[in-house]
């Protein structure tokens, strides 16, 4: 008996050593920006809260209005989209931060600000890492994260994983689907731009190559508050400009480093945490989770050694039991 126990520990420690010594070699880094990444820049100081982007999003993606209790009460429908948050019919949502008297826009105290919430299209999406059926895939070139309903098994692990609470699920359908912003890739393929950027009248949401957007965002951060600046409308390289005074930005581009980086980046005059955007580490949850998993399972060496040891041990002990009996 002692012999076997020793054998077992030998095998166990062999497995553990294999697993742990190879740790550094297998640490999975956070993925970097895709080569031809496209993205969106949202500038909260330009947003007038008109929700045209929501209408554009719903039009482009053929999503229905969310009906309110008021509508139900009066027996009318189609009057008002009353989505209160991102939901299974709303991939893009304008929310408002209000403080005190909410008298002035883009001010933290006694002010207000809008924020447009939608998928961040992370460089290293947690949802992609979590999905057991590869239903959420990040485009290797342009980098938008798309959903394949034919692969999805509806386990909703992506919802658990996503720190931005983006994937939404149709809980009230017999044959439900997941709903998330896919950066209107069906329109992009035809040469168009995303619904939100196309509809936005003020240039608060602009579409473009991520590098250009990032450069534009950096440029805006360096502008002097109060100076006039010509903001592009719809796309970052658009001829359509809108001139207006520059607000005092928070010196941070949200989405530049959050979770390893994202393709939806934001500027604001109100701290991003006040706008409900989580403070995120600079590495992705996916890298953490996969590093752990790969450490334990790389090449299945650990488990196979463990299994070998167990087979030997059980073989011996079952034999012994049989002879005992």
């Amino acid at each position: 008996m002692n012999l076997q126990r020793r054998d077992f520990f030998k095998v166990l420690s062999a497995g553990v050593i294999t697993a742990t010594t190879s740790r550094s070699a297998q640490a999975r880094p956070t993925f970097k920006q895709p080569p031809d990444a496209v993205g969106l820049l949202y500038d909260a100081t330009l947003c007038i809260g008109c929700k045209a982007c929501e209408v554009g999003c719903k039009t482009r993606n053929e999503k229905p209005n969310v009906h309110s209790e008021i509508e139900e009460y009066f027996g009318v429908s189609g009057v008002w989209d009353d989505s209160r948050d991102l939901d299974s019919a709303t991939m893009n949502k304008i929310k408002v931060y209000k403080n005190g008297t909410a008298a002035v826009k883009d001010r933290e105290i006694d002010g207000f600000s809008f924020v447009k919430r939608a998928c961040m299209h992370c460089f290293d999406p947690d949802c992609q890492s979590a999905c057991p059926t590869s239903a959420l895939i990040k485009d290797p070139v342009k980098g938008y994260v798309t959903y394949d309903k034919d692969a999805c098994c509806g386990c909703r692990y992506c919802q658990v994983a996503c720190q931005y609470l983006i994937p939404k699920f149709e809980y009230h359908k017999a044959l439900p689907e997941l709903v998330k912003c896919e950066m209107c890739n069906h329109i992009l393929e035809e040469g168009g731009i995303t619904g939100c950027a196309e509809w936005c009248p003020t240039g608060a949401t602009i579409y473009g190559k991520l590098d250009d957007l990032m450069a534009e965002a950096r440029k805006r951060l360096e502008l002097k508050p109060g100076d006039r600046y010509s903001f592009s409308v719809h796309t970052v390289d658009s001829d359509e400009k809108k001139s207006r005074p520059v607000e005092k930005y928070i010196d941070h581009i949200y989405g530049e480093k959050e979770g390893g980086g994202a393709q939806y980046i934001m500027l604001s005059a109100v701290p991003f945490q006040k706008l409900g955007l989580p403070e995120m580490p600079e590495t992705s949850g996916a890298s953490k989770s996969e590093t752990l998993q790969h450490t334990l399972y790389k090449g299945l060496i650990g488990p196979i050694i463990l299994l070998g040891g167990m087979v030997v041990a059980t073989y011996r002990s079952t034999k012994k039991h049989q002879t005992d009996e």
Partner: peptide, 21 residues
């Protein structure tokens, strides 16, 4: 030419950052 939207306190019907479910 599109107007500059002056500060208007946003309508109470707008969803808050944290929207109680």
């Amino acid at each position: 030419q599109q107007a500059t939207v002056f500060t208007v306190t946003p309508p109470a019907t707008y969803p808050d950052i944290v929207e109680e479910k």
